[in-house]
C-alpha cells in the first residue's frame, strides 16, 4: 500500500519528532509593560475591536478583524504616527485553521517603535487594499495575490507580478509543492517548443542525489560531440594546455616558465 500523504500541506516535515516534545513559546508580554505601547493600545481599543494584543520581541502585535484592516492601517498612520509600512506578508494557515494571516509591519520613525497589525482572512474572503494610504501596498498586495492567492478589493492594478501571467497556481500556498506541479515543470518546454516536444526534451532531473556512473566519461569531448544516445568514441583530449602544441598563428604562446608569480596582489 502506498503511504498516505496529506495534500493540503506539502511543506517539508521533520522526519522524526519526540512524542513528548513540547515546543517552547517565544515570550510575549502584556502591552502595559511598555509606556508608549500602553498608551497606543488604549487608543486602538477605543476605535477597533481588538482580538489579541501583546508585545513580542519588542514589537507591538495587534490582531484586528479582517474587515478593519484598512482603517487600522490608516489609524496607525494618522493617529499613532507609524509613518512607514514596511512589509505586508500573508501566512498560509488554510490547512490548519482555514485562514490566511495577513501581517502588516509598521515603523514609526519618531518613537522608533515597530508594530505589527495582524488579521485573519478566510479563504474566499477578499481583503481591502491599503493602497490609498501607502503606495507600497500596490506592489506588496500584487505579490500577495500572485504568490499566495489572496484576493484584494479596490486595488488599482491587480495582476500577477512575480510569476508569468499564464502561470497556474499560487506557489507560496502550503499545498503547492516546492518543485512545482505538472504545469510548472513543463512550463518552458510547452511555451517554447510546444507540448509534443516534451518527449524529446524529457522530464527535469529533480533528484539532487542522482549519480550517473557515466558522468565522468559521458560529457561531450571537444570536437567529438555525438548525437544523443550514440556511442561515445574513446578519444583523448588534452586539457592540460590552453593552446595547441605548435601554437596559434600570431598569438603569443604562453610558456609556463616565463610567467611571474607576484608576491603581492596589485
Amino acid at each position: 500500500m502506498r503511504e498516505y500523504k496529506p495534500k493540503g500541506d506539502v511543506q517539508a516535515k521533520a522526519y522524526y519528532s519526540d512524542r513528548f516534545w513540547v515546543a517552547p513559546q517565544l515570550p510575549t508580554f502584556s502591552v502595559d509593560s511598555d509606556e508608549i505601547f500602553a498608551e497606543q493600545s488604549k487608543k486602538i481599543n477605543e476605535n477597533f475591536e481588538v482580538i489579541k494584543e501583546y508585545i513580542q520581541t519588542g514589537h507591538l502585535v495587534v490582531e484586528v478583524k479582517a474587515e478593519d484592516n484598512k482603517d487600522a492601517v490608516a489609524f496607525f498612520k494618522d493617529e499613532l504616527g507609524y509613518n512607514f509600512l514596511m512589509e505586508i506578508a500573508a501566512v498560509d494557515f488554510l490547512e490548519k485553521r482555514g485562514v490566511f494571516e495577513i501581517v502588516y509591519e509598521m515603523l514609526s520613525t519618531t518613537t522608533k517603535k515597530r508594530a505589527r497589525i495582524k488579521c485573519c482572512l478566510r479563504e474566499n474572503q477578499a481583503l481591502e487594499s491599503v493602497n490609498d494610504h501607502f503606495r507600497m501596498a500596490d506592489w506588496s498586495e500584487r505579490e500577495m495575490y500572485d504568490l499566495s492567492g489572496v484576493k484584494i478589493n479596490n486595488h488599482p492594478y491587480l495582476k500577477r507580478i512575480i510569476m508569468p501571467d499564464d502561470w497556474q497556481g499560487h506557489p507560496l500556498r502550503k499545498d503547492y509543492p516546492m518543485i512545482g506541479d505538472e504545469a510548472a515543470q513543463w512550463y518552458e518546454v510547452d511555451k517554447i517548443f510546444g507540448k509534443e516536444y516534451r518527449d524529446v526534451i524529457g522530464p527535469e532531473n529533480r533528484d539532487q542525489a542522482r549519480v550517473d556512473r557515466f558522468d565522468t566519461q559521458r560529457y561531450s569531448k571537444i570536437k567529438h560531440e555525438v548525437p544523443k544516445g550514440a556511442e561515445f568514441s574513446d578519444t583523448k583530449t588534452d586539457f592540460g594546455d590552453y593552446q595547441e602544441k605548435d601554437g596559434v598563428f600570431l598569438v603569443t604562446k604562453l610558456k609556463k616558465e616565463d610567467s611571474v608569480q607576484l608576491k603581492e596582489r596589485r
Partner: peptide, 26 residues
Amino acid sequence: QGMRPPVGEVYSATESPKGELGFYIN
C-alpha cells in the same frame, strides 16, 4: 534534524547597503 526554535514570529531589520533588509520569520 535541525534546530527547533520556539513558536512565535519575529521581524528583524538591518541596514543593508540598499536599505532596510528585514526578515519576517513565522
